[in-house]
C-alpha cells in the first residue's frame, strides 16, 4: 500500500525471457504495461472487449486478451509477445510461413494470429484445416479473408525454403 492511499502490488514476471520487477496498481491492464511501460508495441489494442485477438499474448504458453487482463495476473509467470518469437535474429518458422504464404496485409492482427497459431501448433503439430479454423476463430482479420492465414499455419515447416 503506497502512502498516497492507492494500492500497489509487486509484479515480478518475465517477458520474452527478460525478468522484470515492477509495481502495478490493481487496475493496470497487462496490455498497457507491456506497451507503455516496457515499450513493446507489437501487441495491439483494437476492440478492447476480448473479441478480436489483436492484443493476444501468451501467459505461461496460453493465449489471453491482454486488453482485459489485469497486469497483476502475470505474477511469477512467463509472458511471450510477438517481439519474443524470433531468436538470435532469426524469425520463428510461423513468422516465416506467414511471409511465404502471404498471411497478412496491414499486419495489425498478425501478432495475435502468430501467437495463437503457436499455441495451436504446440498442442497439435499437424492440425487439419478444420482444426485450424476452429482454433483461430477468435482472431479477427479485416484484410486477408483468412484463406491465406489458414494456408500459412498449415504450411509451417513445410516451405521449400525452410
Amino acid at each position: 500500500m503506497a502512502d498516497s492511499g492507492r494500492q500497489t502490488l509487486p509484479l515480478s514476471f518475465s517477458v520474452n525471457g527478460t525478468r522484470y520487477d515492477i509495481e502495478v496498481e490493481p487496475h493496470e491492464l497487462l496490455l498497457d504495461v507491456i506497451r507503455k511501460r516496457l515499450g513493446l508495441t507489437g501487441s495491439k489494442r483494437s476492440c478492447d472487449v476480448q473479441v478480436c485477438g489483436a492484443c493476444t499474448v501468451l501467459v505461461n504458453g496460453r493465449p489471453v486478451s491482454s486488453c482485459t487482463l489485469p497486469a497483476f495476473e502475470a505474477r511469477d509467470k512467463d509472458v511471450l509477445t510477438i517481439e519474443g518469437m524470433a531468436e538470435d535474429g532469426k524469425l520463428h518458422p510461423i513468422q516465416e510461413a506467414f511471409i511465404e504464404f502471404g498471411g497478412f496485409q496491414c499486419g495489425f492482427c498478425t501478432p495475435g494470429m502468430i501467437l495463437t497459431a503457436k499455441t495451436l501448433l504446440d498442442e497439435n503439430p499437424d492440425p487439419t484445416e478444420e482444426e485450424v479454423i476452429e482454433y483461430m476463430n477468435g482472431n479477427i482479420c479485416r484484410c486477408t479473408g483468412y484463406k491465406k492465414i489458414v494456408e500459412s499455419i498449415m504450411g509451417v515447416g513445410k516451405s521449400e525454403a525452410s
Binding site: 476480448q50 473479441v51 485477438g53 489471453v64
Partner: peptide, 9 residues
C-alpha cells in the same frame, strides 16, 4: 463457448 482466450480465463 466464446473464443479461446475467454475460455482460457
Amino acid at each position: 463457448v466464446a473464443n479461446l482466450r475467454v475460455r482460457e480465463v
